[in-house]
Design a protein around this nucleic acid. Sequence first.
RNA 1: GGCGAGGUAGCUCAGUUGGUUAGAGCACAGGACUCAUAAGCCUGGGGUCGGCGGUUCGAAUCCGCCCCUCGCUACCA
Length: 513
Amino acid sequence: MSKNFYITTPIYYPSGKPHMGHAYSSIVADIFARFKRLEGCNVLFLTGTDEHGQKIQKEAEKNNKDPKKFCDEISETFRSLTKILNLTNNDFIRTTEIRHSKSVNEIWKRLIKSGDIYLDKYSGWYSVSDEAYYDKDEIEEQNGKKISKTSGSSVEWVEEESYFFKLSAFQKKLLDHYKKNEDFILPHSRKNEVVKFVEKGLKDLSISRTSFSWGIPVPENKKHVIYVWLDALTNYLSALNFPNTKDEKYKSFWPADVHIIGKDILRFHAVYWPAFLFAANLPLPKKIFGHGWILSNEKKMSKSLGNILDPIQVIKDYGIDQLRYYLIKEVSLGNDGSISMENLKNCINNDLANNYGNLCQRVFSFIKKNCDNKIPARNNLKDGDIKLIENIKENIPKLIDHINKQNLNEYVKMVVNFSFEANKYFNDSEPWALKKKDPKRMHAILHTIVEQIKNISILLNPIMPIATKKVLDTINLSDKEISINNILKDNNLDYNSELKDLNILFKKIENDN
RNA sequence: GGCGAGGUAGCUCAGUUGGUUAGAGCACAGGACUCAUAAGCCUGGGGUCGGCGGUUCGAAUCCGCCCCUCGCUACCA
């Protein structure tokens, strides 16, 4: 009965510290994962690290470490980030694990079998310092030396034996797939880029390297290691025990429902990955969502600009729920979004402290003082009360739709509106004026507002798991009742237990620091 | 250069197939209230909707030209 749902983040390349972009991808994926669980889905949420390649090998050498040991350490910082970000990933995959190399080997064999791999030579102008090949028109001659126009570093003509993947053969199949599956690549603006790119024609792809050794060896030719993208992308299958297609996990979760990625790696996911899967005769993921970049004060974060926002530091200063909420509210998923400390503070103070946080505070302390600290039962509700409650219920399909369309922004705005509405309702109803005059009416109002707080908190739970859990604990709602279904039910609050104490949910941020 | 996206209030953006006085949040100013984290609620100012021209009874919305910003343009991830 419960639907399976498989969502992934990119696996991160641990050549440096985790940054805001990593945090963003992970948080976004976690929010979808959590929401799907609220809906009652059986969710598999995967993240991990991509550890092979020349860069890692060099870094390890520089640090005088065995590459595997080096990766163990850095991978660990990404694993600890999942805790800091409060992610609910069910698994954490590393490309240095055996289960992964098994899976990559199988993919390789399948591509060989299908005849989509051949051995040839790769040649071109290569810059050692940039670790990149340049096209003829990307280089120029200076003092008799060839240099790259863009980086200025010297390049040399290199010929390297390499295995190639017949990417060119998949142009039509890819274009057909894009056409038949409108939402395969999202957002649509990015889809157009990919389509235009593929329409221009595809060259075969070099999928092995001999210039370094830190990678998964080509099964039949150990001089080569498998090109890092063929290696990395396969992780999505490895976590399902892939070579074993009879495995429960594989059967339940492949094809993936959505790969959440940054726009910078869209091509690999939207062109190479489907082509590999076509060749391997495996189903394609249902959706690839390329989100935008997080900019700091309108600019790309860079050391020279001094505008780097370290997610770990921001979380230390302001809290993880706060960062999660802010990123989702402020940035429209799919577009680049600018964030700033100034806006973060405003957002925390307005939406969280003044609006949602204070709503909970004012209501619960009112109940404590006037209702023996128990939620009044559902009695004597007036049309206005019912209308308020029903408004959320009626909007549930719309909210689910926003999530299914990755419209996180709209989702949050709608939920926050419920919170505005609840504050207004409380104000207009003036329960404080009814203590003596009409306690029945006062009780009806308080019942209604608690119902709203409960439902709003459930809806915000995927975004701010810690704070909303505190609120739901206060009204004695158990974990398993935190679900979309619970919102749709009537009259299911706990009227017998006393409310637990709720401390200030979100501290306000002072302006002077 | 080619292809694509966009330029709407001080800031971030929404504006459905062209239709009455162009909207929201934040910021700013004023008011009534007190349950609450001096929070919440109400009211208000502020926009030649990038520029010019065209189609139309009527254009932020359609067409043309121009100006500006941004993305993609193949093997660093």
